[in-house]
């Protein structure tokens, strides 16, 4: 296990902390989370979805977690348009607007998702592999949001 990683940094824990030791007991969880984050943000084959678009989607989804430290763990995109997307804005561009709606749906109310929502993405020009990659990206953010939230509850009660 690496001495530091994104989740430890977000939680503000270091090798002398009880929660750090607790995490180290499950090295496959710790390293696996890092590998997954890299796979959705910087995959070997990006399938035509740039890192900037991936950052924008990740940050928009992360924003639903109401945790500024967690939000800050995803890089900000480099363009004004994507930064506005990341911050929850309503994009003018038709393709980005569809992506924004899908991001909000999957992050907030996944139970409402249906075949129609995938058709909306296909209609504005996303390919099937891109839709799968976006699904994994969104779901990864939602996973890590809950890891950080859950573990932070154990941090607050260290040695309790």
């Amino acid at each position: 296990m690496k001495t530091n990683n994104v989740i430890n940094t977000t939680l503000g824990i270091s090798p002398n902390d009880a929660l750090y030791e607790l995490r180290a007991f499950r090295p496959n969880f710790v390293d696996g989370a890092e590998v997954c984050r890299a796979a959705v943000l910087h995959p070997d084959d990006n399938l035509g979805l740039t890192s900037d678009v991936r950052y924008a989607v990740a940050r928009r989804a992360a924003g639903t977690g109401s945790n500024p430290d967690f939000l800050a763990s995803y890089p900000a995109p480099s363009t004004a348009e994507l930064r506005d997307f990341a911050a929850g804005g309503d994009p003018q561009d038709r393709k980005l607007a569809a992506l924004a709606r899908h991001t909000d749906l999957i992050a907030k109310t996944p139970s409402d998702a249906s075949k129609t929502h995938l058709q909306d993405l296909l209609d504005v020009g996303f390919s099937v592999p891109q839709i799968v990659a976006l699904s994994e990206l969104l779901a990864q953010v939602c996973y890590e949001m809950r890891i950080v939230h859950g573990l932070s509850l154990l941090k607050d009660t260290d040695h309790a």
């Binding site: 696996g32 590998v35 997954c36 995959p43 070997d44 592999p129 799968v132 994994e136 990206l137």
Partner: peptide, 19 residues
């Protein structure tokens, strides 16, 4: 279906099985 994106498929499957 998920192997349309092989990078995330492999990473997630390994984490899922560990958990």
């Amino acid at each position: 279906t998920l192997v349309h994106d092989p990078d995330s498929y492999v990473a997630r499957t390994e984490l899922f099985n560990a958990i």
